[in-house]
Each structure stands twice: as C-alpha cells, then as structure tokens.
C-alpha cells in the first residue's frame, strides 16, 4: 500500500513541491497552477509540448519535462485528470508564437478537461492541437483504435513529440509525427496485484492467488479478463502473441521496445521476462531498437508489467534517437 503521506488531501501538492525541490535542474513550478515547466522554457519559435494526467504514474508525467521532451506537465490528483482550469493555466505559462500540442492518454476525464482548455485557448486566438495516446490493445478492437486508452505507450509518443518540437518543427509537423507515432505504438499488460490510494487501507482490486489479470489499466482498474498465473516465458509469449497480431504490414520489421514495470514488479523480474521477449522477437525477425526495461508509466504500487512496441520507420527512428534530459528519462547524445 501507499505508506508515506501526511494528509491524503495534500498528497498532490506535497509531491509536486518535493519533485520540484529535488529536480529543480529540470523543472520549476508553474505559478498558481498544478504543474511544472522546463527550466529553459518557454523558447520563442518552438512548439510547446504539454503533457499531463493524474498523478500516481511517475515518471509519467512530470518526470518527462525537460529539453528534448515536454515543455510542461499538468498534474491532477492521484488517478484524476487535472481540471481544465489547470490545463489552461499551464498552457499560458509555456505557449509561445508557435502554438502548443496537447499529448495525453485517452481517458474521458483527460479528454474533457484538455478539450475544454483547448477550446478556451483557441477562442483567444492560440493554436492548440491534440494527440491522444491510444496504445492499449486490450481496451478496444483494432478497428476502433481511437477508443483505446493510453498506457505505457505514452513513453514513446511523448518522446517523438518532444524530439520533433525540440528540433524546431512546425505545429503541423509535430502533430503529424506524434499522430504517426501513436498509430504505430501498441501495448499490452498483465497485473498480479492492485494498488492502494494514499489514505486508503484496501487495494482497488485484488488478484486471487495463482491468478493474473490480462489487459490491466494504469489506474488500478482490474484487467479485462483473468487467467491462471503462468511462468515468465509463457507471459512473454502471451504479451507478444497479442502485440504481434497487430504488426504492421510491409517493410523491414524494427521496433522500439519498452518493458514497463507498474510499481511493485521489480527490475530483476523484468529482466527474466525480457530474456524470453528478446529471444522470441529475434525468432520473429523483428529487430529491437533501443530496448528500455524500466519503470516508466506506473500505477502506484500495482504489481504487473506492460510491453510496448513502437514500429519504427526512418523518421520515427531519428526522433527516437535524439537526445533528451529529464528527471524520468535521459538519453545521451553518445
């Protein structure tokens, strides 16, 4: 369970204060708003990439603010979308003359609040576009990708948006590339145990011993179905069978890969799983580019993991390889 808090009602405010105190080399607090912005921003002529969502997913979202990534992150309460007022205020803090791109996971609360803020900015003459991350294959069938929710694929879509904006692309181009990245990103996950909100004593859901949930959500939602617990090798196949079913047609097969821990499944376990993912993808003829085995889009202390693939082409690979620096993810130029 979540153990460290003072008053649960102050959890968000206190975590922002602590995050900014620790990582002032990347971010500063946006005055009178629930969010952070990059210390070097806003930059004239650069598209502002604004990400955000509920708290409880660190390093998503505030951990991705920095050069080569996002210009600002709007931070809601634990697992709750930020209000449109906060999205609007954060936008005003970083938007310059090149417009802004909102990029966030596709959840009704985030959609409502970011859309209301975008409308308000547009009425004031600012160019604000939106790309919603829809990578979770468990949440809707392939012909309804726009209905899927965003999970760990956020990591790749934000990276592409940030890299495109950082090199000076226009808002049209940043939007196009971000949409393209999202269209080629797929994720699937499994959960072994639920998470507990600060101040609560019971987890949001429990998984019976010897079982696991398939198609988890990153807000402690139970999975879309349940199955017997399997070995790591079997789970590697299960994740890949699902993702490879949506492998794009044609061209050489190369993919960026994130094996993401949800919070309570640790690195050593992930490496055991990764060994079989790596072997299986080699058998399938997929070249893995820059694999990341890490906790990137978490769900407090939830147990489980998700696998994300970004099917690369030349323009996406160049953006993925661009350097970036943030509290949550650093990619050196070396």
């Amino acid at each position: 369970m979540t153990k460290l808090w003072n008053d649960p009602a102050d959890f968000r405010a206190e975590l922002i204060d602590g995050f900014v105190a620790a990582y002032g080399r990347y971010v500063r607090r946006i005055p009178d708003a629930s969010g952070v912005m990059a210390v070097d921003g806003p930059r004239s002529g650069k598209v502002a990439v604004i990400i955000g969502g509920g708290s409880g997913h660190y390093p998503a979202f505030c951990g991705y603010v920095g050069p080569g990534l996002a210009d600002a992150a709007v931070m809601g309460n634990v697992f709750a979308a930020p209000s449109s007022e906060q999205v609007y205020r954060c936008t005003q803090a970083v938007i310059g003359n090149a417009g802004a791109l909102y990029c966030y996971g596709n959840y009704s609360g985030d959609v409502l609040n970011f859309d209301m803020a975008a409308m308000r900015c547009q009425m004031e003459g600012q160019d604000v576009r939106t790309v919603r991350v829809t990578d979770d294959v468990a949440s809707a069938p392939p012909d309804q990708q726009e209905k899927r929710r965003g999970i760990s694929g956020d990591f790749f879509v934000f990276k592409i948006a940030g890299a495109s904006a950082a090199r000076g692309d226009t808002l049209d181009e940043v939007e196009r590339l971000t949409r393209h990245a999202n269209a080629r990103t797929r994720s699937f996950g499994v959960a072994f145990g639920g998470c507990t909100l600060p101040g609560q004593t019971e987890p949001l859901f429990t998984v019976e011993p010897g079982r696991m949930e398939l198609g988890l959500g990153v807000h402690g939602e139970p999975g879309v179905s349940s199955s017997e617990m399997r070995t790591a090798a079997e789970i590697a196949d299960l994740l890949l069978d699902t993702l490879l079913a949506e492998r794009p047609d044609g061209g050489e097969a190369r993919a960026a890969l994130l094996l993401n821990g949800l919070g309570n499944t640790k690195y050593e376990e992930l490496f055991v799983l990764y060994k079989d993912i790596d072997r299986r993808l080699a058998q399938e003829g997929v070249r893995i580019h820059r694999p990341v085995v890490d906790e990137q889009v978490t769900s407090l202390n939830m147990a489980g993991c998700s696998l994300s693939l970004l099917w690369l082409d030349d323009e996406l690979e160049a953006l993925l390889d661009a350097p970036c620096a943030s509290a949550g993810y650093v990619q050196s130029a070396l």
């Binding site: 809601g76 906060q86 009704s108 609360g109 609040n113």
Partner: peptide
C-alpha cells in the same frame, strides 16, 4: 470543477 478534476469535475 477545479478542485475535483477528472471527468466528474468537468
């Protein structure tokens, strides 16, 4: 709306 956030707040 501002304090609640989420879909319910909106």
């Amino acid at each position: 709306s501002d304090a609640a956030g989420g879909a319910s707040g909106a």
